[in-house]
Design a protein around this nucleic acid. Structure first.
Lengths: 233, 233
DNA sequence: TGCGCGTATACTGTATGCAGCATGTACGCT
DNA sequence: AGCGTACATGCTGCATACAGTATACGCGCA
């Protein structure tokens, strides 16, 4: 079967229920970018640590060329820093850097809040609600990793509802830099409970389509995030 | 002289007036990124055009390897798009894309406005004023290219005054994508005059340190920019 | 013993070569 | 004549090899 087979072709060969989704051929580039990004977020590559091309390449089973290309990509994202003739180091952030990022995130999310309340369809809002409910469930059984993942998904979905791709991308770029730091926060039960309460308010305002209220809540939420993480810096 | 010579060393060899600024060794990577970015902004590489690695490499006098690395970097900036196994194409934007970017810029600049009015020193504000005066001068003699460059510099300086590096970077990333489109605008004398008036109001509010007013003005300015460019899309 | 210098080593930066994939073209079949 | 298919070509994706630069160590000298 050729890659550009029509839906009709596929329907003839496979169950009609399955959509003709094209085979995802993850390029090595994407694969490496994702893997290295995850290594940084998970702490396998500590902030300030120098990245050894030969070593890391061998570890991932790829040659230096695609690895280097991936590093340039991550550098543009702001996750690593390129020092001429001395290679790449994992970027480390000062408390002020983190504070600044949270401030920008608050501004972006507030804007997204207003747009989402205006533009999102009821179906889309229901989907976020579903994510929220699953997250609440994870909170009750204290499944921190899964809770965290759903939390990130909610924020991303929320940004997507704004319908502004640039806004979404700008948000995602900053968010990815903070992922690690945010994960480390939320460890104290009280803090976790606070975060949960804020999320509860968020979903409520979204369903009421009260953009102004939602904007206020996400700003407050970001302030809360700062309180939760600043001690760990 | 070794690269890490102390200020004392330098003072002994060169005029004391010259600061010991280290020799700028632009890496090939930076050089290529800048050149290709400029080629896109200036239109030498048209939106939608496919980038031929071998050809462009030869044109720039570099091999494919560093060029490819630079392309990955630009892809992360959003200036070009990478299609697996088919190389890179210059990204083209729909009117909605442009509108979305301007909306985000408005939000970022409004935030920067409030911060700048609070944090900037009088000296820094005076520097922006100086840029503004030079720009006014270029406007009066109808030097459009120089006007445009100073305009960009003012916006960048303004963002720097906010003191939030993340904000500055996020703004710069979007701004660079719009550079070409913005330059094409402002061609009608009336439009140019309008833009000039808005800038006049901006610098006034900055000097008065009226953050709220400045925020309103930059938002209005962005709305004006949209009016100026939308016809060209 | 401490400092300065030279050398060695190891890593990054760049070029080149080969393999795989996409596309355009020409031929054969219906 | 029209369509499908096989092949040729040219590009990208990746690996390897070489050159240039930073760093660390050791030696000589004050």
């Amino acid at each position: 079967m050729t890659p550009d087979s029509t839906p009709a072709d596929v329907a003839a060969t496979v169950s009609a229920a399955e959509p003709p989704r094209p085979i995802t051929r993850r390029s090595l580039h994407d694969e490496i970018v994702t893997r290295v990004r995850d290594m940084i977020i998970e702490g396998a590559l500590a902030p300030g640590a120098r990245i050894h091309e030969g070593q890391l390449g061998q570890q991932l089973g790829v040659s230096r060329t695609p690895l280097r290309e991936a590093l340039k990509f991550l550098a543009s994202e702001g996750l690593i820093e390129l020092v001429p003739n001395r290679g790449a180091v994992v970027r480390s952030f000062t408390p002020k850097d983190v504070r600044d990022m949270l401030d920008v995130l608050a501004v972006l999310e507030s804007f997204a809040a207003r747009l989402a309340c205006r533009n999102a369809s009821s179906v889309e809002i229901a989907e976020v609600r579903a994510l929220h409910d699953r997250m609440t469930e994870r909170y009750h059984v204290r499944d921190r990793l899964e809770y965290f993942k759903l939390n990130q998904q909610i924020h991303s979905a929320f940004l997507r509802l704004s319908g502004n791709a640039t806004l979404e991308a700008a948000h995602a770029a900053i968010q990815s830099r903070l992922k690690r730091i945010r994960y480390i926060g939320n460890r104290e039960p009280q803090q976790w409970q606070d975060a949960m309460a804020e999320h509860q308010a968020m979903i409520g305002a979204l369903e009421a389509r009260d953009g102004e209220a939602l904007a206020r809540i996400v700003t407050k939420h970001m302030e809360g995030t700062w309180k939760r993480v600043k001690a760990t810096l």
